[in-house]
């Protein structure tokens, strides 16, 4: 199976939407009020990216679907986000570890996409790259503080890193997007750069890079963990109760 551009765009849009939703769940529960504001901000940036990507998906698909169609009217098996972003928030350390792994991959992805031969994606990448650079400053800054903070925070940070590590390989690129790459629509592999950058952050945080444990994947092909369905059920419930309504 070869992935087409629509699949690629939905993978990115779903990634941004699901992670945005997870971060929004922190609002009113964050460790400081400043952090409530910070996490809401990142959530909003990701939501904005998702909306652009879904709108573009609708154009590519050509069936008149708008952004809300892709968010509210597809079931879990139709979502193409990597498993990492649907993982529950856990404690703040789990969220931060998930975010560092994601942000580093997203930054490299968007940087490469500024060169895409697809003008829409290249334009979106120029903005998303700046947003993501700030997200990474935020998440890496926290991981370093947690890793090099107290004994408890170091223990929790390491546990968060270990728990999220098995979901990272899937972030580093799909195995079925070779044709898109050949056409210059998407960039080359980010794996080497990601591994080097993440190892650097973990080192500065005084945390161990986990050994290559069993990796879990499947989200980008529609095979999800048990966590996506309840997330979507909550998100879609109201919209689906009123088909055809506008809000």
């Amino acid at each position: 199976m070869t992935a087409d551009l629509l699949t690629h765009v939905l993978r990115q849009g779903d990634r941004a939407l699901v992670l945005s939703h997870r971060l929004a769940q922190w609002i009113t529960h964050a460790p400081t009020l400043e952090e409530d504001v910070a996490l809401a901000n990142i959530s909003l940036d990701l939501l904005g990216q998702a909306r652009h990507l879904f709108t573009y998906a609708g154009e590519i698909e050509g069936k008149g679907h708008d952004e809300d169609h892709f968010a509210y009217w597809r079931d879990a098996a139709e979502f193409r986000n990597p498993l990492l972003v649907e993982q529950p928030n856990g404690d703040f350390a789990v969220t931060i570890a998930r975010q560092v792994f994601h942000d580093q991959a997203a930054l490299l992805y968007w940087e490469s996409m500024t060169e895409s031969t697809d003008a829409t994606l290249a334009a979106l990448a120029a903005r998303a790259r700046n947003e993501t650079a700030f997200h990474l400053q935020h998440s890496a800054g926290w991981l370093i503080r947690l890793g090099d903070g107290t004994d408890e925070s170091q223990r929790r940070a390491q546990a968060g890193v270990d728990a999220m590590w098995p979901f990272t390989l899937e972030l580093l690129g799909a195995d079925d997007e070779g044709a898109l790459r050949a056409d210059g629509l998407i960039g080359g592999s980010i794996e080497t750069a990601w591994r080097a950058a993440v190892a650097g952050t973990l080192l500065e945080a005084g945390l161990r890079t986990p050994t290559e444990a069993h990796q879990r994947a499947g989200g980008i092909h529609g095979t999800h963990s048990e966590h996506l369905e309840p997330l979507l059920e909550e998100m879609q419930q109201l919209a689906r109760a009123h088909p055809g309504a506008s809000w």
């Binding site: 400081t32 400043e34 504001v37 910070a38 901000n41 935020h138 800054g141 503080r145």
Partner: peptide
């Protein structure tokens, strides 16, 4: 004003709070 443990974190908080 903001509250933050260090200057870097204070800058990020200030960015989120005063330049949205």
């Amino acid at each position: 004003s903001v509250h933050a443990p260090d200057g870097e974190t204070a800058l990020r908080a200030a960015r989120d709070l005063f330049t949205r």
